[in-house]
Computed example of a mutant assay.
Amino acid sequence: MFRNVLMLAFFLLLNACAATGVRETVQNKDLPRQHELTKTPFFPQELYHCGPAALATALNAIDINVTPDQLVPEVYIPARQGSLQIEMLAASRRHGALSVKVAPRLDAVLKEVAAGNVVVVMQNLGLSWAPSWHYAVVVGYNLEQEKIWLRSGTFERFEMTLSTFQRTWARSEYWAFVALKPGSLPASDDPDAVAKAIVAFEKNSNKKDAYLSYDAAVKRWPDHLVLLMGLGNSAYALGNYSHATSAFRDATTAHPDSAAAHNNLANMLMILGDAKAAKLAAEKALALAGADQAMRVQIVKTIEEINSYTAKNPH
Rank of each mutant, 00 (worst) to 15 (best):
H243W: 07
S188R: 11
A197M: 00
I62G: 00
I306N: 11
L6K: 08
R220G: 01
N206P: 09
V137T: 10
T252F: 13
F158L: 14
L8G: 14
L55G: 02
A294Y: 08
S258V: 05
N60L: 01
D215M: 03
S188T: 15
F155G: 06
N60V: 02
L31P: 11
G21P: 03
P191E: 04
D189K: 15
V109Y: 11
M160Y: 05
A19P: 01
Q166C: 01
T40A: 07
N15C: 11
P256N: 12
E283Q: 05
F155D: 06
A277F: 07
K101I: 12
A58S: 14
W175Q: 14
A56T: 05
L231I: 01
M160L: 08
L231V: 04
N124W: 00
A176E: 12
E304R: 15
A217I: 07
P44G: 05
N233F: 00
E173Y: 15
L59T: 02
E112N: 15
N307A: 09
T154C: 03
F177R: 04
Y214N: 03
G96A: 04
A291V: 08
Y135T: 10
A176M: 09
L89T: 07
L162F: 13
P256A: 09
R151E: 02
L265R: 11
F43A: 03
N142M: 08
A244M: 02
Q70C: 10
D63C: 10
